[in-house]
């Protein structure tokens, strides 16, 4: 029974971002069909690859007839951030059976990381049951993503022009909803500002490389200001002691 309870906890924590993902999935399906890609291809991408923003970038590249190696290496670059999510989660999964880790790896998306990581952080779940909440979050996203892709493919064939509605703004709003709770201390604000400015300055770099560089600069700025701030606090503490 506790398996169901924990899975439900993970799914409930994901609801806001599932709602944000619905228009995004519809858009993916309708864009794929407006680019003339077959319905099974769009469905295969959502069910086998399961990587929202990378899927968008990929069908954009396919529509301009980019070579296969460019499509696949761009996917690699766009998804490289998931390596960093995995690195953060390793301490919670290392004792789990390999089968569970395979499923968790397959389902490691921004939204599930954002929904489940705080549950560990606030001790709502721990190493013993956190993966169950994770699976609940993953399955609900997986279901939503595939159903909306399918509906998008179908409605894209029925409602031309749907891809111009600006549905991808839902992804922007979802990501803002993930970011804002972090902005309680200076290093996080500085990480955000430096990443934002760099991403715009480097937007012209090929294959979305600007995204990766901007992200690394954001992490570096956050980390360095964190160190500096920590040091200042130590100095202050020493002054008090004196």
């Amino acid at each position: 029974m506790s398996l169901f309870k924990e899975m439900r906890r993970g799914a409930v924590a994901s609801i806001p971002m599932i709602v944000g993902g619905i228009p995004f999935g519809l858009l993916f399906g309708s864009l794929a069909s407006s680019y003339g890609l077959s319905p099974w291809f769009a469905m295969a991408m959502s069910s086998v690859v399961f990587a929202g923003s990378a899927q968008f970038v990929a069908i954009g590249l396919i529509s301009i007839h980019a070579p296969l190696w460019v499509i696949i290496s761009t996917t690699f670059v766009v998804n490289l951030r998931h390596l960093l999510y995995a690195a953060d989660l390793v301490k919670f999964v290392k004792h789990l059976p390999m089968k569970v880790r395979v499923i968790m790896g397959f389902g490691l998306i921004d939204e599930t990381y954002a929904a489940v990581r705080p549950l560990y952080g606030t001790r709502v779940v721990d190493e013993k049951n956190g993966h169950q909440a994770y699976l609940g979050s993953f399955l609900s996203f997986y279901l939503m993503w595939n159903v909306t892709t399918f509906l998008g493919v179908m409605s894209g064939e029925l409602i031309p022009g749907m891809s111009d509605w600006g549905l991808e703004f839902a992804m922007v709003a979802t990501f803002i909803g993930i970011i804002t709770p972090y902005l309680k201390s200076k290093p996080f604000v500085l990480a955000l500002l430096s990443s934002a400015v760099t991403s715009v300055l480097l937007v012209g770099l090929p294959n979305n490389l600007g995204l990766l560089v901007a992200a690394m600069i954001g992490v570096l700025v956050g980390y360095l200001s964190d160190l500096r701030l920590g040091k200042c606090q130590l100095d202050k503490a020493e002054e008090v002691v004196r």
Binding site: L84, D88, F175, I179, L192, A214, G218, G222
Partner: peptide, 21 residues
């Protein structure tokens, strides 16, 4: 410590160009 800044940095880098350009 550095990894704590990853989500903010990555997601910001994805959406900022979409927002301002």
């Amino acid at each position: 410590k550095a990894l704590r800044y990853v989500p903010v940095a990555v997601l910001t880098a994805i959406i900022t160009p979409m927002i301002v350009m």
